[in-house]
């Protein structure tokens, strides 16, 4: 159903929108930038960080753009002296309770809070207050949580609930004591999908296997497809010195940037010392190192021999559901055209 268009203005410019949209959505569509922290793709608006406050003519107070629906004829301003001061204050408040250890933080260079501090030129917060001590939870092998860096934007809580459907984490306590954690009376029921890491705008949630292996922006990115299940999730591998050091997934991909624990954390096997490094040939009952030409020649000779002695149909090939289309195509071509038999199958029946 086509929704009827309504008209409103942003910073003096007339724009059209659907009536069900929020101010933030319409602003983004029209390339007007509004800073946000707690807003996150696919998640319900939360209205907690107040960074997205804007002026609406006729309303006494600033309103959060992320959770305010547009109305016909609305006159919106997204930047003014007042808004700017307000946002600056919010960032200062956040910094007042945030250990400024960007030097060591995994997220440095890719952190929304750091960006905001930079933008507003806030070296030290004027507001000196009590700071939460580093509250590190690394009781699992995948995710490290440092609650002293948490800005309580609730993105992790919402993604875990709304997308992953797990609700492993929530807000605990109140006031200054509020933090994110596992509700006390429940055991940790986490699927280690890492959706929460990906949605955290700051360094409060980070991937343990990726620690100190190179910040995201220091790595070379290569887009590829997850090697595990048939969902075909898109991965972007982070490469440093010929090593995979991390993974993320684009929110514009068919899997919307979501992954499971295998896709997000399952890359280490590539560099495992057990990787076969050279061909092996059985000699005297043992598999021993061989040169490529030696191994290939042996295979070719043996296949030829069996073919001429016993016939084509005594040979067979099993191909792989883990190899590429090109490789599977060539494999069956090899079996059919070179070995001369249709005895080719794969293990996907299993």
């Amino acid at each position: 159903m086509e929704e009827k268009k309504i008209y409103l203005s942003i910073n003096g410019k007339e724009v059209a929108s659907a009536p069900s949209q929020t101010i933030l959505e319409v602003a983004r569509e029209n390339k007007v930038f509004i800073p946000t922290l707690c807003d996150c793709q696919n998640l319900s608006p939360f209205g907690a960080c107040r960074l997205c406050l804007v002026e609406v003519a006729g309303l006494p107070k600033l309103v959060p753009a992320c959770s305010t629906p547009v109305a016909a004829g609305m006159k919106i301003r997204t930047d003014s002296e007042k808004i700017d001061q307000y946002r600056r204050l919010i960032v200062e408040l956040l910094l007042s309770d945030h250990e400024p250890d960007c030097m060591f933080c995994e997220k440095a260079g890719d952190c929304l809070l750091q960006d905001l501090a930079y933008q507003y030129g806030l070296k030290n917060s004027r507001l000196k207050g009590e700071r939460r001590a580093a509250l590190i939870d690394d009781s699992n092998p995948f995710i490290e949580r440092d609650n002293s860096k948490c800005i309580l934007c609730g993105r992790c809580v919402r993604v875990c609930d709304e997308v992953q459907g797990v609700s492993a984490i929530g807000f605990i306590g109140r006031g200054f004591q509020t933090r994110i954690g596992t509700p006390f009376n429940r055991k940790l029921n986490c699927e280690f999908c890492g959706q929460c890491i990906a949605s955290c705008p700051v360094g409060a949630l980070t991937s343990k296997p990726a620690r100190r292996k190179g910040r995201k922006w220091q790595t070379r990115w290569v887009k590829t497809i997850c090697p595990y299940c048939g969902c075909g999730c898109n991965l972007t591998l982070h490469i440093k010195d010929n090593e995979i050091v991390g993974v993320h997934s684009d929110s514009s991909s068919p899997n919307e940037g979501y992954l499971c624990s295998k896709g997000r954390f399952g890359y280490e096997f590539v560099h495992h010392p057990d990787r076969l490094q050279f061909p092996l040939i059985r000699k005297g009952g043992q598999l021993v190192r061989a040169e490529w030409y030696e191994a290939l020649r042996l295979v070719a000779t043996k296949f030829q021999e069996i073919k001429s002695r016993h016939g084509n149909n005594t040979l067979a090939g099993l191909s792989s559901a883990k190899c590429t289309n090109e490789e599977n195509y060539l494999f069956q071509k090899f079996v059919r055209a070179v070995l001369g038999t249709n005895n080719v199958d794969h293990c996907a029946r299993l």
Binding site: C226, Y228, C229, K322, N325, N328, Y329, N342, N343, D345
Partner: peptide, 18 residues
């Protein structure tokens, strides 16, 4: 739902006996 990352492709590519 196909189990492995390229089961579908292995079948599409004719890695089947018939």
């Amino acid at each position: 739902l196909r189990g492995q990352n390229n089961v579908q492709g292995a079948c599409d590519m004719g890695c089947l006996p018939n």
